[in-house]
Write a protein that binds this DNA or RNA. Structure first.
Lengths: 233, 233
DNA sequence: CGAACCTTTGATCATACTCAAATGCTGTGG
DNA sequence: CCACAGCATTTGAGTATGATCAAAGGTTCG
């Protein structure tokens, strides 16, 4: 929601810093503020009855924290959000934000676009987990993150910043940490991609996409429109 | 969205009937109308690149078709919706509906509740698929549907109406039809539940819930509030 | 310097898939 | 009314993908 700074910046806002693993939003809480990640990564998770965690998604620098909170009023969010790396979050008052979004036509259609992307990705994630094999899941996971990093031009040097641990990736994809390690080893050996020192190197993007069986059309359509919103600002 | 009939019924609406498997909403379409299932079941699906389908969710009688459409403006929905049984859908103009929801405070907070349930279920479904084993997934699937059927008092006789085929269940849970059959046989043999003649009989709800490892608290909280909205109308 | 965590590798195991064939049910047209 | 095609279910036998258990080396942090 990195949008139309003139309008948004008129809102009172506060920046808060978080250490890795620090809680940003509590599961079951009614959010009072609406946040956006100024820097760093974060993850949305759900604590299961047996104590294990399931990671529902990952937030990249510049992205929105829990878009839900703009629309659910006084209801609670069903997940918590923690910092994955050191992170800074910019907080806005929800009420004012929602009001602004409703009145300003441009803002509103932009929010609708983000929300539709949000719905898309929630559904897509479930489809990915249920149909792809482990390697395919991981490949899709990487491609999605890549797309989002590129959208915001977060390329650093030759590689991409890629802080999640194997255990976190596993919790995202419904795999075990050990097996994620094996997938990484396999992809590295096949010279498709390599992760080292929290950096991701894509060696053969074409084959990576083939493995991910990426649904080009449906995502492309959305990202093209999203990237247009960046050009305009 | 079976709510405050006085207000909603003032909107122009049309009822349309559908045969089993008939398309209700096309994938990639911008919905012009907002629908609610007057009778029958429907399913939201996504066609994958390899031609297979993934079922994203199932809609029961009385429920809303694609709550998304109220919030995404002119964007497209990333899934299609088909009738699962013979079904009747009641269509409302989206614009008027959205406007009504925004102005009327009661309606609005009710929509927020439904939307938060929608977000919950999208996330929950992904968590279910990625963490539970096949039997657990199915048990959770059943318990969720059961909860929703009861919410609307759709009990018929001693059993519950349960039209989905094993192949559809499989596409919902990321399993194969054959294995779903084996799960059913196993649960029947263990006297936990039984499906015959499109009817579901719960033989041992306690054990079913245990298998589903149902997240009692988080769902209960929502359903209690949802059922309150039914009592009020 | 030690503790905690992350990664890597090996060996074994089980859950769920694949392939295949038989049975039953439903609807349709001759 | 029957024959048949098409689908849904059931069961069997064999297989593979990813889990589990275990241990060793590497990092990071206090």
């Amino acid at each position: 929601m990195e949008t139309s700074p003139e309008a948004v910046s008129s809102l009172r806002s506060a920046v808060k810093n978080y250490r890795p693993h620090q809680r940003i939003l509590r599961q079951g809480q009614t959010p009072e503020l609406f946040g956006s990640l100024r820097s760093g990564w974060a993850y949305a998770y759900r604590v299961l009855d047996d104590g294990r965690r399931h990671l529902q998604g990952i937030m990249l620098p510049g992205e929105t924290i829990a878009l839900d909170s703009l629309f659910i009023g006084s209801n609670t969010i069903s997940f918590g959000i923690n910092a994955l790396t050191s992170a800074a979050v910019c907080w806005f008052p929800i009420e004012a934000m929602a009001c602004l979004l409703h009145k300003n036509k441009t803002q509103r259609s932009e929010t609708e676009l983000w929300l539709s992307y949000y719905f898309w990705s929630l559904n897509h994630r479930a489809a990915n987990i249920s149909r792809n094999d482990a390697t395919g899941r991981f490949a899709e996971f990487v491609v999605e993150i890549l797309t989002r990093l590129r959208l915001r031009n977060l390329v650093r040097g030759e590689g991409y910043e890629f802080p999640p641990t194997q255990a976190q990736i596993a919790d995202c994809l419904g795999l075990t940490p050990v097996y994620v390690g094996r997938i990484l080893a396999d992809l590295r050996q096949r010279r498709i991609l390599e992760v080292s020192d929290r950096t991701l190197y894509i060696l053969d993007e074409r084959r990576l996409m083939a493995i991910a069986r990426w649904e080009g059309p449906s995502l492309d359509q959305i990202t093209r429109r999203l990237s247009r919103t960046f050009e305009n600002s």
